[in-house]
Design a binder for these strands. Structure first.
Length: 487
DNA sequence: ATGTAC
């Protein structure tokens, strides 16, 4: 007897615990899968996520299945929390399956401070960070520069930051691709995008982006936590932001170009928002080169914010940041496509792996995991909401088989921003977090706090439980917020 | 997410 889940006519069959499949029918090239508990699946089925996931299976060259992570929700064309691997020779690349905020992602910086060291200094710390780290909509970055420097950043990534004095060698060794995505071509990024990027290098932005000081509250795997350099009561800093106006403009530029030049393919797709460039076409190459450049921009963005954070801690604690061992644990991308080789039906194939609101989660032994972590697996950082805390996982043994080496990226929204603003008042949320939970929040805009109220998100514990039980990303430690700044 | 709109 097969267990089924009927979401207004979209019927999923349970393959096994936490694995639900939408069988191939009509124009679907492959089945679709949702990786979720029943309670998360109920939440996922409330918006257009399942319809968008089904639509995604129409994309040329999509391999095995379109997959939705446990934190999935609807996005532009393709679900946030979606993974689609398209053949790099005969398939396609789709900007909507990468996301508007190219290389939106998170990095975690460690310290050797304990909760006792920062306790009582929360207010001073949050004020100093808010002052030092540019945030909110519009311009203003750690550096404000010209187009020529933006072009360097686009092509050289964190290597540019190293030369400019905003990074140390060790930072590059603890970032995917060592902080420099190959195949980036600044000439494929429009002048308009570069202009928007000039004064936003080192800026948080708005929406769900934030910088949070956290303490480690729980350790689930002693050996892996030790390999990551994490222990109970340790203070860490989480930085969540993306490629700001530059990435947004780049996505928009290529969506319009692809719609114009590949209208034939567009007409065959169930949703215009899935516009895709056929693999091997000039536009596929150009978008890939521009997206890679925007990926580098986002890495530099997070690097400069981390640099500023080190300076703030040095100031507040009156000693050099090096003495506080403020080292990068890892930096994970949430919105990217990448050419990767995966085993499909017993043979190696090169695929454009699109991860939109999904995190790479390569297991121990994978050659692309940085040397420092190769024995235990890639660190995966899952930010929860302001009131919930976050997790560090490690890439699980089953991720390559189930999700092209991916897991969730956060708690996932439960309601739209508009709905959130109707349900919550920013100042009330801020006050409740401070007096109720001792979490100090400082934001440019009260509306942003309302949009990001903890109740707007799914239960991050449940999302992580599913990832852990599926073996795609295993729990290592949990953290809880101390103070948080946002746009 | 986003100079919060095509």
């Amino acid at each position: 007897m097969t267990t089924t889940f009927d979401a207004d006519g979209i019927v999923l069959e349970q393959v096994r615990e936490h694995v639900w499949e939408l069988p191939q029918e009509d124009g679907m090239r492959v089945p679709a899968r949702v990786l979720a508990s029943e309670s998360l699946l109920e939440e996922i089925s409330e918006d257009r996520t399942l319809e968008q996931l089904r639509n995604a299976t129409h994309l040329p060259g999509i391999t095995n299945y379109a997959v939705c992570m446990p934190d999935g929700h609807q996005g532009y064309g393709f679900p946030v929390g979606g993974v689609g691997a398209m053949d790099a020779e005969n398939g396609c690349i789709s900007p909507g399956a990468v996301g508007y905020d190219i290389n939106c992602g998170v990095r975690m910086m460690k310290t050797n401070l304990t909760y006792d060291d920062v306790s009582g200094l929360e207010r001073e710390l949050v004020d100093a960070l808010f002052e030092a780290v540019p945030s909110g909509l519009g311009g203003g970055g750690v550096v404000e520069t010209g187009v020529d420097t933006v072009e360097q950043i686009l092509e050289r990534g964190v290597d540019w930051a190293l030369e400019a004095g905003y990074a140390v060698e060790d930072d590059l060794l603890h970032c995917e691709d060592e902080g420099v995505r190959a195949g980036a071509d600044a000439s494929m990024v429009s002048q308009k995008a570069k202009d928007r990027g000039k004064n936003q290098v080192g800026s948080l932005g708005s929406g769900n982006h934030f910088l949070e000081v956290q303490r480690v509250t729980d350790v689930y795997d002693d050996a892996v936590a030790e390999a990551f350099g994490l222990e109970r009561d340790q203070i860490v800093v989480l930085i969540h932001c993306g490629s700001r106006g530059l990435g947004h403009q780049t996505c928009n530029d290529y969506l319009r170009k692809i719609e114009r030049q590949h209208g034939g393919l567009l007409d065959q797709l169930p949703d215009k928002e899935l516009a895709a460039a056929p693999a091997g076409s000039q536009l596929a190459e150009e978008y890939y080169a521009a997206m890679n450049a925007a990926i580098n921009y986002a890495w530099v963005n997070r690097q400069l914010i981390m640099h500023r954070t080190r300076e703030v801690f040095a100031d507040v604690f009156d000693r050099p940041w090096e003495s506080m061992e403020m080292d990068l644990l890892y930096d994970v991308a949430h919105n990217i496509a990448k050419k990767e080789v995966h085993e499909v039906d017993g043979e190696d194939r090169e695929l454009y792996v699109h991860r939109k609101g999904a995190t790479r989660a390569f297991p121990a032994g994978h050659p692309n995991v940085p040397a420092a972590y190769r024995d235990v697996g890639q660190p995966v950082i899952i930010p929860g909401s302001m009131g919930a805390g976050s997790y560090v996982l490690r890439g699980g043994e089953n991720s390559l088989d189930l999700t092209f080496g991916s897991t969730a990226h956060g708690a996932g929204r439960l309601m739209s921003r508009t709905q959130a603003k109707n349900e919550y008042w920013g100042e009330d949320v801020r006050e409740e977090l401070e007096s109720g939970q001792g979490i100090y929040v400082k934001a440019q805009s009260g509306a942003t706090v309302a949009e990001e109220a903890p109740g707007v998100y799914k239960d991050v514990d449940e999302v992580v439980r599913v990832s852990d039980e599926l073996g795609i990303g295993d729990k290592v430690v949990r953290t809880f917020p101390v103070c948080n700044i946002k746009g």
